[in-house]
Design a protein around this nucleic acid. Structure first.
Lengths: 363, 363
DNA sequence: TTTAGCACTTGGCATATGCGAGTGCTAATG
DNA sequence: CATTAGCACTCGCATATGCCAAGTGCTAAA
């Protein structure tokens, strides 16, 4: 890729860039003449033809058939994305859409990320995707137990991210306040900050020993916690799937079926995002995607971090001929905004006036 | 509709039924000859032609164009559904799919309903839809308050359906246990069983008066409760959207876009289901749907009730030529199974052996 | 090295043609 | 009088044909 950059003459770069951009705009193969007129390249079409022929030989362009214009190959897109494209400047309208999303008092971070996918979709006209990642290992910082009824209590778990989750548990035999206090202290003593997967039988036995009257509750409660932890999966949402249909690339029914199926399955996307762990914007073009059904699409995404920790990712899925500059700019601006904003509401020990009360995440 | 039934001769009914069923099977217009051969009607094609011509005049059939076979009109489907169709018997394989869903230890009712849409989709090959309805007015039966930190407490609300919801609230000034107890008793005294929309300013003032040290918390907490209540929306999920693409009816791009857009919006579906309040199976054929984009589709759904209260609905969306008998049978069997099952886990005061603990709904 | 010119390729589109499925009508039949 | 056989007719669809425009590659001139 670095060497490829060396080999391309400046003029070839200009032409490649023009071809890519023209094709992104129109979706049609672009011919030599178009570049001299619309794209203002001060060369005759014949010269451009020669250059394009060489670019094709090098693998940056390809021809759908003889005597059609040229279309960028994946390699061409890749080179464009890596070396050629310029920053897109968001205009006032676009900026205002983003900030209106962010000022609409969003309480939970989850909602913020979810809505962000809608904004991405609306601004770029591709399918927006939002992933809310749950932390792999959940360190519960504090347990609380609350009696609800005679056979019924609520287990409250405050996890590392200062988010609160609860689980209602029913028992077979009646319980009382005192038993629950025992349970609470025992849970806190043994399980605080511990990954539930590390809890072994001896630990459980020790806990039961020191739980006193609450001993019979220990085992079921741990089972509950475990169930709860494994239940936590990353959540994925899409918005604007129908926008894909605008692009002739997706008029093929079988391709479309595959896409819709994948969007429903969600696992592929989760894996893909989990693997693409780069901090900066990730761009996977066509067959760079491991997932089969994405081999003729591009996916662009960026993880969202709040105070250093990744909490999710947002991005878009669209055709190969994606408006990369715009997508990248929008995405980066949006994620940085979210990071800023979430950071603010996250650390509010002292309020900043008004009777605002904030809500943490809630399962 | 009753009179229409009178007017149709027995023979016309047989023919109409055969046409509908043949068309559902093949998707093609059905001609007079086909009925004599495949559908074993002991009449010559000429006779059938005459009958079909009359059926067309009456509005039960229509011709895509002269010299094509006949296709059922919406009226034709409606009559078929109301009077003609016979029960479909689920076969062993189908029954086992359903019961395997139900035996897979599903803890929450929500999950059960959600998964049911997948089963519907898999068995019928249409798009499955699941709606989890939240009760319109939330009568909170009990409030509990749990201190989490110096500026942080958890509001626990047990609602009528014995389901528990929680909301984390942060405060501006430090709180202590005693203040929270005050808050709790005040909330319970004034707000139990009350629709939050009925809470007026005088009530709030009275509450503040009797809350003592917790007075400053009252107003923000009520705001929180209100926010929470209005936040509760019915949830809708779809499964097997891609299956729609199998039917040529949906090969029209603009139609498809509309569908996908609607499936994403979800509000239309919620409204539609909310209005179709019949207890039995609801079938909306084509333009019987108010929603524009569904005018060329059929939606079938049935509400799921647990101990008399509706908790959601499941159904399918598909083309007009839907396999109504199968859909209806599957749907009714599935919903009844869910009702049974949910009833069981809902009322477990005394366990039935083993160390099982059950989880109620959880927001 | 660039450009103008020209012959050539090819997909798309519009038109023409044949085929087959299915109809409606009429006349014959039980 | 209801039913049926026969037949001419109507369309949609698929295939074949011809033409056009866009675009190319190549060659020769500037």
């Amino acid at each position: 890729m670095a060497d490829a950059g060396k080999i391309l003459t400046e003029r070839k770069k200009i032409i490649l860039k023009a071809v890519v951009e023209a094709h992104i705009e129109t979706g049609e193969p672009v011919g030599s003449k178009l570049l001299t007129t619309d794209k203002q390249i001060p060369l005759s079409s014949a010269t451009i033809r020669n250059e394009m022929a060489e670019l094709e030989e090098m693998g940056y362009l390809e021809q759908p058939h003889t005597s059609a214009g040229r279309v960028p190959s994946e390699k061409g897109y890749r080179f464009y994305v890596d070396s050629l494209m310029e920053d897109y400047k968001l205009n006032a309208g676009e900026l205002s859409v983003i900030s209106s999303l962010l000022t609409a008092r969003m309480t939970a971070l989850d909602k913020l990320v979810e809505r962000a996918s809608g904004v991405m979709s609306a601004l770029t006209n591709y399918t927006g995707v939002a992933i809310r990642q749950k932390p792999r290992k959940i360190g519960v910082v504090m347990f609380r137990v609350l009696m609800l009824g005679e056979y019924d209590f609520l287990l409250v778990m405050v996890t590392a991210g200062n988010s609160v989750s609860t689980k209602e548990i029913r028992t077979q035999s009646p319980i009382d306040q005192e038993t629950l206090s025992c349970l609470e202290t025992t849970l806190n003593r043994f399980l605080c900050g511990v990954d539930i997967n590390d809890v072994t039988l001896p630990t459980i036995m020790k806990m039961e020993a020191s739980a006193g009257r609450a001993a019979p509750l220990i085992s079921p409660v741990i089972k509950c916690i475990y169930e709860f932890v494994s239940e936590i999966n990353d959540e994925v949402d899409f918005e604007g799937v129908n926008r894909l249909l605008e692009y002739p690339e997706y008029s093929d029914m079988s391709l479309l079926r595959g896409m819709l199926g994948m969007l429903e399955r969600k696992e592929d996307i989760i894996r893909l995002v989990a693997e693409g762990s780069r901090d900066s914007t990730n761009i996977y073009i066509g067959s760079e995607n491991r997932v089969d059904v994405l081999k003729s699409s591009t996916i662009v995404f960026k993880t969202v971090k709040v105070s250093g920790r990744p909490v999710g990712a947002i991005g878009v899925i669209g055709p190969l001929r994606m408006d990369y500059p715009k997508v990248v700019s929008t995405l980066e601006y949006l994620t940085s905004k979210i990071t800023d904003m979430a950071g603010e509401i996250g650390m509010l020990p002292e309020g900043h006036g008004g009777s605002d009360n904030n809500t943490g995440e809630q399962k």
